[in-house]
Write a protein that binds this DNA or RNA. Structure first.
Length: 594
RNA sequence: GGACCUGUGGAGCAGCCUGGAGUGCUCACCUCCCUGUCAAGGAGGAGGUCGCGGGUUCAAAUCCCGUCAGGUCCGCCA
C-alpha cells in the first residue's frame, strides 16, 4: 500500500521509487503542472504531476482537499531555489507517475489548514476532521509520548500497573456520581469511580506495595476549560514510604518528562511551601510563583485604625490584605471601577484602593479612604507594602479565607491584565513547580456546622497531632501534599491512615458513625484490620499535565473525543434519551413531565 | 443555579452604539484560463430564516423582552 511515510522523505531518498498514501491537504493547480501537498501521520510532502505522466496530471486536476490518494512516483531534489525551508520534506518532491483516488471527500465543514479557530461545537461534532489539524494531532501524539514515559519511569521503580473496576460503588470524593443502573433492578446501581482511592489502598493491604494506573475517573459536575466529566489520572500508591520518597520519585518523573519531551532541565528538588504560607502570601492553595504582587497582611498597620471597613474586619477576627500593583497609580477611574466590579462579581462587598502620589512632604495616598487614615498609618502602609510613587495598592478586608482567596484571585487577574503571565510575557518558558505541604486535615463547614475533610477521610493526621483529634480538630495537620505548576494543581495525595482505630477517630470528627462507616466503607475497614502496611500515594491529572506541556489553553485539545457544556458530545449526540423498555429492564421509570 | 461574552451564506469576521433594500471583507465552494507553486495566480459564478420567539416602529441584523446554543468565570468540583 505504501513504501514510505510522506513526512519522512529527505534528500537521501533522491531517485528512490516510492508509493505514498495519504490525504490531500492542498492543491496548487497550474494547468500544465499541478502540486499536491500529501499529508499522512508522518507529515507532509509535495507531489508534482506534469505532462510526462498525463494520466497522473489529469487525476491531479480532479482531486480536492481531504481526498485520500495513493501516489506512485520518484523522489527528486527540487530545482535550485524551489526548496521550502518551512517543510521538513522541503528539499525534495515526489514526481508522480500515477495518482489513484482511494477515497473522495466532501468539502470539510471548517478549514483544516491554517490557524483559524473554528466553532467549538463544529470541531467536536466532526472531531475526526479536527484531529487531522496540526494542533490537536500534536496533542494526541504528545499525550502518547507522555504516558509512555510515565510507564517507563514508574516501572523502573518497580511499580506495577493494576486495573481497578469501572463498575463500583460511590467513593467519598464529594462530587456527584455517575450512576449505572443494571438489570439487577430494584433501585440498585453501580457508580462510576471518581477515583480508584479505596481500591488502591486495598491493593496495599494485598501486598502489591507499588501500584500505578492511568485511571479513568468520572465526576458529574459542571465543566471548565480544565475539567471534563471523565478524565484520566496518573494514580499511584506505595507501601512503606513517606513523603520524602514520593517527592523524590515524582521530581524524577517530571524532570524526565520535561527533559525528554520539552528539552527543558528542571531544577530539583522542587520548592516547598506550607499551605499556611501559600494562603498568606498568595491567597490560594495553588500559587503561581512566576510573578510578584504578593499579598501583604496589614493587621499590624491598621491595628488602631478608624477606617470603618478595616476596623470591622479586624474586630470580627478577619484580615486586611493588600496587593500592590507597580505603576498602577496611572489606572483611570473607569479601570479602577472595573476592578471593583470584578471583586463584586466574586461576592465581595467591595475593593478599596489607594494610589501613591508625589506630595510636598514625600509620597501621599490618593484614596477614598485617605481621610480616615492617619499620616502614621499611611507611612506604615507604604513601608509594609513597599509601594512607591506611581504604584497602586488594592485592599481587601473581611473574613480571613474569603479575603485572602479574593486577593489571590485579584493577584492572578492583575498579572494577566498587565501581561505578567501569558503568551509573550516574561513568564513564558518558566516552569514553577512547587509542593504545597502541611495541610489542615479538616475544614470547618459553617453551612452544615461540621468538620469536612480537606482532602479525603483516609488522609493520615500528623503523628504528634493525634491527641487533637478529640480536643481541637482544626489544629490537626494532615500528611498531605499537592504538586502545583504555574498556578495549576497537577495533583495531590497523602500518606493514608492504616490503623482502623485512627480511621474511626477521624470518622468520629466527621460525624460518621461506626454503623455508617461500616455501610459505606466497611470493605476498606475490614481490609485495614487484616495487616495494613503504612502506605500513601498521589494522583495527577494527566489531561492538565498534557495541556500544560502542549501549551494549549483547554484540556479539550488533548483529549481525543472531548465533551462540551453539560457533558454533551455533539458527535455521538450523547447523552441520549433511553427508551421506556430499556428503562423498565433496569427498574427505572420516567418521571411525569413537570 | 448565577454573571459576562458570542451567535450574520460552508468557515472566520465587520455592520448593531446612532433603525432606512442582506451592505462589506478574507477564506472555502463551482466553471473556465494558466508548466514551478508551496496561503499559487487570473476571470466569472453560486450560496442568507442575520440562532429562535415575541414586542416597539411607517420600517428591525440593528432598539426592548424572552428563549435556545456555545465559550469563559462564580457556585459546584481536588
Amino acid at each position: 500500500m505504501r513504501s514510505h511515510g510522506a513526512g519522512t522523505l529527505r534528500a537521501d531518498h533522491t531517485d528512490a521509487t516510492v508509493t505514498l498514501a495519504g490525504w490531500v491537504s492542498r492543491r496548487r493547480d497550474h494547468g500544465g503542472v499541478a502540486f499536491l501537498d500529501l499529508r499522512d501521520a508522518s507529515g507532509t510532502c509535495q507531489v508534482v504531476a506534469d505532462p510526462s505522466a498525463s494520466a497522473a496530471l489529469a487525476a491531479a486536476h480532479e482531486v480536492r482537499p481531504e481526498w485520500v490518494l495513493q501516489i506512485h512516483g520518484t523522489v527528486r531534489r527540487r530545482p535550485e531555489g524551489m526548496e521550502n525551508p518551512s517543510l521538513a520534506t522541503g528539499e525534495v518532491e515526489v514526481a508522480a507517475s500515477s495518482v489513484t483516488v482511494l477515497s473522495p471527500a466532501e468539502t470539510p465543514p471548517f478549514p483544516l489548514e491554517g490557524g483559524v479557530e473554528a466553532d467549538e461545537t463544529l470541531r467536536v461534532r466532526h472531531r475526526y476532521l479536527d484531529l487531522r489539524r496540526e494542533t490537536p494531532a500534536h496533542g494526541l501524539r504528545l499525550r502518547a509520548q507522555i504516558t509512555s514515559l510515565i510507564r517507563r519511569v514508574m516501572e523502573s521503580h518497580g511499580f506495577i500497573d493494576v486495573e481497578t473496576p469501572m463498575l463500583t460503588r460511590s467513593t467519598p470524593e464529594g462530587a456527584r456520581d455517575f450512576l449505572v443502573p443494571t438489570r439487577a433492578g430494584d433501585g440498585v446501581a453501580y457508580a462510576l469511580p471518581q477515583s480508584p482511592q479505596l481500591f488502591k489502598q486495598l491493593l496495599m493491604v494485598a501486598g502489591v506495595e507499588r501500584y500505578y494506573q492511568l485511571a479513568r475517573c468520572f465526576r458529574d459536575e459542571d465543566l471548565r476549560a480544565d475539567r471534563q466529566p471523565e478524565f484520566t489520572q496518573l494514580d499511584v500508591e506505595a507501601s512503606f514510604i513517606d513523603e520524602e520518597d514520593l517527592y523524590a520519585l515524582f521530581e524524577e518523573l517530571f524532570a524526565t518528562l520535561w527533559r525528554e519531551i520539552l528539552d527543558v532541565e528542571l531544577a530539583t528538588p522542587f520548592p516547598r511551601l506550607s499551605y499556611d504560607e501559600a494562603m498568606r502570601r498568595f491567597g490560594t492553595d495553588k500559587p503561581d510563583t512566576r510573578f510578584g504582587l504578593e499579598l501583604v497582611d496589614l493587621a499590624a498597620v491598621f491595628a488602631d485604625t478608624e477606617v470603618g471597613v478595616f476596623r470591622g474586619a479586624l474586630d470580627a477576627g478577619g484580615v486586611v490584605v493588600a496587593v500592590t500593583l507597580p505603576g498602577g497609580a496611572a489606572l483611570t477611574r473607569k479601570q479602577l471601577d472595573d476592578w471593583v466590579d470584578w471583586a463584586k462579581g466574586r461576592r465581595a462587598k467591595g475593593l478599596a484602593w489607594g494610589a501613591v502620589e508625589d506630595g510636598e512632604d514625600g509620597p501621599t495616598l490618593r484614596s477614598p479612604l485617605t481621610k480616615f487614615m492617619s499620616a502614621a498609618e499611611v507611612d506604615a502602609l507604604l513601608r509594609a507594602t513597599g509601594a512607591g510613587v506611581g504604584d497602586l495598592i488594592f485592599f481587601g478586608a473581611g473574613p480571613a479565607t474569603f479575603t485572602r482567596e479574593l486577593m489571590g484571585a485579584l493577584r492572578v487577574a492583575l498579572a494577566q491584565d498587565r501581561g505578567l503571565i501569558g503568551p509573550g510575557s516574561p513568564a513564558e518558558g518558566r516552569w514553577d513547580f512547587l509542593w504545597v505541604t502541611d495541610w489542615p486535615l479538616f475544614e470547618w463547614n459553617p453551612d452544615e456546622a461540621r468538620w469536612d475533610p480537606l482532602h479525603h477521610p483516609f488522609t493520615a493526621p500528623r503523628e504528634q497531632d493525634l491527641p487533637h483529634l478529640t480536643d481541637d480538630p482544626g489544629a490537626v495537620a494532615a500528611r498531605g501534599y499537592d504538586l502545583v505548576l504555574n498556578g495549576t494543581e497537577l495533583g495531590g495525595g497523602s500518606i493514608r491512615i492504616h490503623h482502623p482505630g485512627v480511621q474511626q477517630q477521624v470518622f468520629d470528627v466527621l460525624g460518621i458513625t461506626p454503623e455508617e462507616a461500616q455501610e459505606k466503607f466497611g470493605f476498606l475497614l475490614r481490609g485495614l484490620a487484616h495487616g495494613a502496611p503504612p502506605h500513601g500515594g498521589i494522583a495527577f491529572g494527566l489531561d492538565r499535565m498534557v495541556m500544560l506541556m502542549a501549551g494549549v489553553a483547554s484540556i479539550r485539545d488533548v483529549i481525543a473525543f472531548p465533551k462540551l457544556a453539560r457533558g454533551y458530545d455533539p458527535m455521538t449526540d450523547a447523552p441520549a434519551r433511553v427508551d421506556d423498555a430499556q428503562l423498565r429492564e433496569v427498574g427505572l421509570r420516567r418521571l411525569p413531565p413537570q
